[in-house]
Design a protein around this nucleic acid. Structure first.
Lengths: 339, 339
DNA sequence: TTGTAGGCGTTATCAG
DNA sequence: CTGATAACGCCTACAA
């Protein structure tokens, strides 16, 4: 593997000159530059990446840690996100370093390692928690990072997020327009900040319509694989049962759909169902689900792009990109049944 | 960010001793080692990755290039594969460097760059073509690599593959057992070597059953988004039309299903349908599709594991892992209709 | 058991 | 415009 020394020797020049010629510095004769470039190409020279980063304090790499076991239902999110991020990296001459962690603390350990060993110039954080230890660590190290999602009341860093509050407002308004007044909410773990914003949007929209938020219609902290039978059975047995359900994640919607069916109800005739995230599961459910769509590839690309820009211009102020989800109306939501 | 120099200074020792203590060399007093370890931990010292790889010719990183635009229908393959590979890397103290390329030549360029700049110790190759330029390049550089899939008649490197020939034999035998004799084959681009093996299995199984392979029932080189209307209409209009179709990729199966339906036929009453790859699309199709399942996460993990083992023991002979797909029988295949 | 010196490949500084 | 020299952080002969 030829080094710059070999190039210099073959061109009868000093290493310094060879380096400057190769890096397009202005202060080198064009004939010299041409010679060096020619020789380098003949020899098949390519600069050693480790040497570059060692001397230059710049690795042209950004880090991303994904959950170790991705559930199939949600995997299209991650792959599309990674696809967008890696494409943005490729366009900017960066690479994406991927690790996987079992849980938040394992992820955190990976981020610490990546930053401390200077393996990456910055990192992408996803699945931001309401109080996220990764944020405090990274900030303490003055490390560069951009998040997908935002912690509550903290704008001192760049983030990209999907406006979950507005998304849920759209969903509620859609159901209100169809005549629904008893609208249930199924939420994920509340330490995820997106969960917080979605619930906020749900409450806001009901309030704006003059409908009190009934706690009997709200179930939160649901995880992948959670059994919805008990909570849904309980809800449907209420004196005033819900006529619509908003499940603020696709896996919840899929689970709710089958549970509701097992409880002898029909979607959408007895009960409308609205999901969040437009993964394959909602498209192929029977009936196909009304949902809020976000462009995961665009998100990945935006996050990576923001991080790279920030690395190139360290004095840049934090930027915030709030993307709007689209309501996709499918067959799972319809007019409320006449009593 | 503290360096080993800082550690040495704080411990009143030379850099050499600090280095040896930290790297568990035998020739250092245990009291000295304890001191160094303590000081390093107090200072929050972590070895700089670039410096290590520069001096050591070892980056603890492996490279993977994925297609830039992943089609949703096939994305669960890639994500599961990446998940498996990155988990195997994490377990071995490696990282996974991800790039994305628009096409084979862009992918090739990425691999060249990764190897030439010594960014990675080895690479993972997927979607092997019958004649694959990446293989010749990597071999010429004496670079380490492991593939998912194998080029034809070339065993001088380590690979992991799913036995597509056996898979198709299983599918054909399943259909034969259901009474089918006219079995059509829908294949993907033939320059992918997996396509070759799958077709081979199809032919073998028919031959073994004494059924001649009818070219009218074979369509190959189909890509994502290809319109199956003309070829399927043509087939179904034959004097002896097929009673079953094997689509050797999930996206083909999905497309075949909707096309067949549009042609007025019912699956499985008029026509049985068998797919390959057990992605979400086959599980949630109506009817759910009989298919051949491969464990993509295990594949990713096996490929990465093989590569890492090979990097650690360079003299190791090439290893080959041929995984067997499982036939998952669902409602899309049934007994041939009585004439 | 510990320290000294040199080098991995690259770029920046400073002098010529 | 070009070249010698130092430095990035780490490791490892070799010497003490």
């Amino acid at each position: 593997m030829p080094t710059i020394k070999d190039v210099a020797r073959a061109a009868n020049l000093s290493v310094t000159t060879a380096s400057r010629a190769l890096n397009n510095h202005g202060d080198v004769a064009s004939s010299t530059r041409a010679l060096v470039v020619q020789v380098a190409s003949d020899l098949g020279y390519h600069p050693n990446h480790a040497a570059r980063s060692l001397q230059g304090t710049f690795t042209a790499t950004i880090g991303l840690v994904i959950p170790r076991l991705v559930h199939r239902y949600v995997d299209s999110f991650w792959l599309e996100f990674i696809g967008g991020a890696s494409a943005a990296c490729a366009d900017a001459g960066f690479d994406l370093l991927l690790s996987s962690g079992d849980d938040l603390s394992a992820e955190h350990a990976h981020y610490q390692r990546l930053i401390r060993t200077r393996r990456v110039d910055g990192v992408i954080l996803c699945d931001i928690r309401v109080r996220d230890p990764r944020l405090t660590f990274l900030r303490a190290r003055a490390a560069s990072f951009v998040t997908f999602g935002r912690a509550l009341g903290d704008d001192q860093y760049s983030w990209v997020d999907v406006d979950g509050a507005t998304g849920l407002r759209l969903a509620v308004q859609h159901l209100l327009a169809l005549g629904h007044r008893r609208i249930a909410f199924l939420g994920t773990a509340r330490d995820y900040s997106f969960s917080h914003f979605r619930f906020e949007g749900y409450q806001d929209a009901l309030l704006a319509a003059g409908i009190p938020c009934d706690n009997h219609l709200v179930v939160q902290d649901l995880v992948v694989g959670a059994d919805l039978h008990a909570p849904l059975a309980h809800m449907l047995a209420l004196p005033e049962p819900p006529t619509a359900i908003i499940a603020c994640a696709d896996f919840l919607a899929a689970s709710a759909l089958s549970t509701v069916r097992r409880l002898g109800k029909c979607v959408p005739d007895d009960l409308s169902l609205v999901a969040f995230d437009d993964t394959l599961i909602t498209q192929h459910a029977e009936p196909p689900l009304t949902t809020l769509r976000q462009d995961n590839q665009a998100i990945g690309s935006a996050v990576a792009g923001l991080l790279i820009r920030q690395l190139r211009e360290p004095d840049r102020a934090p930027e915030h990109i709030l993307l709007q989800p689209d309501l996709i109306v499918r067959r799972s939501s319809s007019h409320v049944a006449m009593p």
